[in-house]
Amino acid sequence: MILSLAQWAQSTAFFTALRSSWYVYPVVLSLHLVGIAIFGGMVLVTNMRLMGLALRHRSISDLIDQLRVPKRFGLVLIATCGVLLLGAKAEEYYYNAFFRLKLLLFGLIFVHGWIFRGSVYYSASELDHASPRIPGRAKLAASLSILLWVGVACAGRGIGYIDPPLDKIHARKVAGPRAAKLASVKSPRIRKGSGL
């Protein structure tokens, strides 16, 4: 079901055009990375303040409350670009282990938010009162958040390094496992990603 949805999505005129143009795809990818640079930076700064590592002259609420809205805008930009990148190569992504890892990490981030939302991220003024001591739960939330988001970035970079052998997969689907072996057109499993 998900697979046929992926195949349908990438075969639409919109995503076919996105994939075929030599510059649209890298432009979307660049915007994705610019978003990561700016708003990933905000996530890092907020969490490092919660861990007591950075911006110690500013109160916790100054950072958390003031950056909440810009971080949401950033997430929308990054996610929009991400969905465009995904749609253009949906079938490949379906088989891509790093993409699956990335989805798993998103799931964990959702759980993380659900757990720490009330006690940390929406209780910034309470955390200010405890200052300069920072409660353990805030430090735990911050370090887990950094770990999860860094994991997302690394898994995202990993996606470009796996090339699922679609020709073999297709051959097996159409004519069974023997045909898949015969269709051993050279498809390298690992390719060099973008040069950055």
């Binding site: 990375l33 990561i36 640079a37 700016i38 708003f39 990933g40 930076g41 905000m42 890092l44 700064v45 860094v150 970035a153 690394c154 970079r157 990993g158 390094y161 690992i190 060099k192 990603g193 950055l196």
Partner: peptide, 24 residues
């Protein structure tokens, strides 16, 4: 073959710190 992608991840984290704080 792992060196390049691992370095790229470090590169991305590095510019999230630098560009992120400058953008702030």
């Amino acid at each position: 073959p792992l060196t390049f992608p691992v370095l790229e991840c470090i590169h991305i984290i590095g510019f999230a710190f630098s560009v992120g704080t400058i953008a702030l």
